[in-house]
Design a protein around this nucleic acid. Structure first.
Lengths: 333, 333
DNA sequence: TTGTAAGCGTTATCAA
DNA sequence: TTGATAACGCTTACAA
């Protein structure tokens, strides 16, 4: 920067002003700096700037794993949304492991970013760093951190209820529910309650046999749980996966048995990943408005970075959702 | 750090030695520093360290987009492989746009990392920064940068040839090939030549009609191209997608017409993404050894960062591949 | 085995 | 509207 200053015949400070967008500068001075920069091919040293300003221009997105379509798509949306604010996104994956989720929030990585967006799987409310003192934070999905951080919420109860209502509306009575237990997230509980509310409203019994545990919200787990249910002779005419991966696994398991979908079993998911669109039959699902979630999360985080004061209170935004009806739940003609 | 030094009764330098792993230190001194650090909850300031050492501890992975399963899975593998070397991965997506691929390599982002792994879609050999002078670089897939950077190559010709041979071995004669043109990558050309070699070896004609252009290597494009081929009345008994996304799109389009797979048309892809495993029928594909690719790329990059000298010559490693036979190309009984 | 002092390249303070 | 100068928090010669 000194070289630029010398060449432009100004002081270092003026060159700095040029790069930080300080408005009070003679056009002539500006022009001289511009050409000096061009001739020297100079670029500001970001490490030095960071040391001085204590700002990194990066935010992190903390998710379980990228090879789940939902998270990959979310990551892409967050990257795009952050680009609008000139922010670079550092994607950190934790495998859904509590220790690693925690490490991403409190470890050295923390210094690399101005704030974080986290979609927690295993983290509990006690794990959050003291609000305000800690890293500016936006939590996606889980509502159990309300009052401790900003949130972008998915209306889990309503989404699941709407899904179950859709299945009931096409005449299904016995819905195999995947993801209702086995992982102790608040999300799972809320969704299960949504399903039970829909069943109750329709005057249908809530058979606990139909709520299947899964070890993970993955296609593998969905396929295995569905295969086990089929093997056990359990009767059901629909499967609701609490995410698309579970539902796609279920679809796979059902089709593999040679059972027709939706004629024998209707299948639907939640998430509206691109995978759902290209299944055959294509998968009915609930769209959680991923683009909106990503944009809102980034906006909230940017605001929180600008004003970390916790006295102003934390914000919770509930994302819109929408039923996407496809062939996997077509009414039987 | 000064606070720690004061508290431990040593100099700043000694504390620095402690954190950089300088071996010559009395156990007693070490212990005093350790407890001072613990009491103060001190962490080294990474920005300052970076400014001083000119090392960031990060590498970037530059890919077209995360919502393609192949790249999401690759990203996860690279993140895992980099963690072994205590490196953080900054994933940058370019949309396959040449300008953005270039920007990722030469823009300000470049300062954030010690090196980059790039899977280029639109970049040409002329675009590479002067080797050595530029960022330590490892190129995945494209072999057109040989001599300009380290490479992890996919044996495109052989992979495609093996794929076509498999289809021929199950009695298919007219293979619709998706991705053979339309995007001017070297990869596409090599794969097309591999297919042609297989056809020639089997004494089959290479009907140019069967080589379909696609605007992108996506499920959408695969579905559209296949639907168009079906509409046009073109006869074919197999589809080979040059990646799994194209093949899955083809599968979708074929099944949607009510045509049986593989009885009427066999379908196969290249990439061995998890999506292929959960299609129905599940998709035959060529595995390019993604884990090996990721590990090798990271290892090469680490070596190149340690020794950026281009005189030592650039390395090219060809990854192993493997045929994964599944139901979508089962022989007709 | 540890300490002193210089400097990495910015931005902030304050004055001119 | 611009300039001189002091940090930011660390590592690295070099000395002791």
């Amino acid at each position: 920067m000194r070289d630029v200053a010398v060449r432009a015949g100004v002081s270092v400070k003026t060159v700095s002003n040029f790069f930080t967008g300080y408005p009070y500068m003679r056009p002539e001075t500006r022009a001289r700096i511009e050409s000096a920069v061009a001739e020297l091919g100079y670029r500001v040293n970001l490490s030095a700037r960071r040391l001085r300003t204590r700002r990194t221009g990066m935010i992190s997105l903390i998710v379980p794993e990228l090879d789940q379509a939902y998270f990959a798509e979310l990551a892409q949306e967050v990257i795009d949304a952050a680009a609008v604010h000139d922010l670079t996104v550092l994607v950190e994956t934790t495998g859904g492991d509590r220790v690693r989720e925690l490490a991403a929030l409190t470890g050295d990585q923390r210094q690399l970013v101005d704030g974080a967006i986290v979609d927690p799987l295993a983290l509990g409310p006690d794990d959050l760093p003291e609000p305000g003192a800690g890293l500016p934070l936006v939590v996606i999905g889980e509502r159990q951190f309300e009052g401790l951080a900003d949130h972008v919420l998915i209306a889990d109860h309503e989404v699941a209820r709407a899904a179950a209502e859709h299945l009931i509306s096409i005449g299904r009575r016995r819905i195999l529910v995947l993801g209702a237990s086995g992982i102790a997230t608040h999300t799972a509980t809320l969704r299960r309650e949504g399903v039970e509310a829909a069943l109750a409203a329709a005057g249908l019994p809530a058979d606990q046999e139909l709520l299947r545990e899964v070890p993970a919200w993955s296609r593998d787990a969905g396929a295995a749980a569905t295969a086990a249910a089929l093997d056990s002779g359990l009767a059901f005419d629909a499967v609701l996966g609490f995410n698309d991966a579970l539902a796609l696994g279920a679809l796979y398991a059902v089709l593999r048995r040679g059972l027709p979908v939706p004629a024998h079993v209707a299948v639907m998911g939640i998430d509206d990943t691109a995978d759902a669109r290209f299944a055959h039959p294509d998968l009915t699902t609930m769209s959680p408005g991923r683009a909106q979630i990503a944009r809102t999360a980034v906006d909230l985080l940017v605001a929180r970075i600008a004003d970390p004061a916790p006295e102003s209170g934390f914000v919770s935004v509930v994302a819109d959702h929408e039923l996407i009806v496809r062939a996997s739940t077509a009414p039987i003609a």
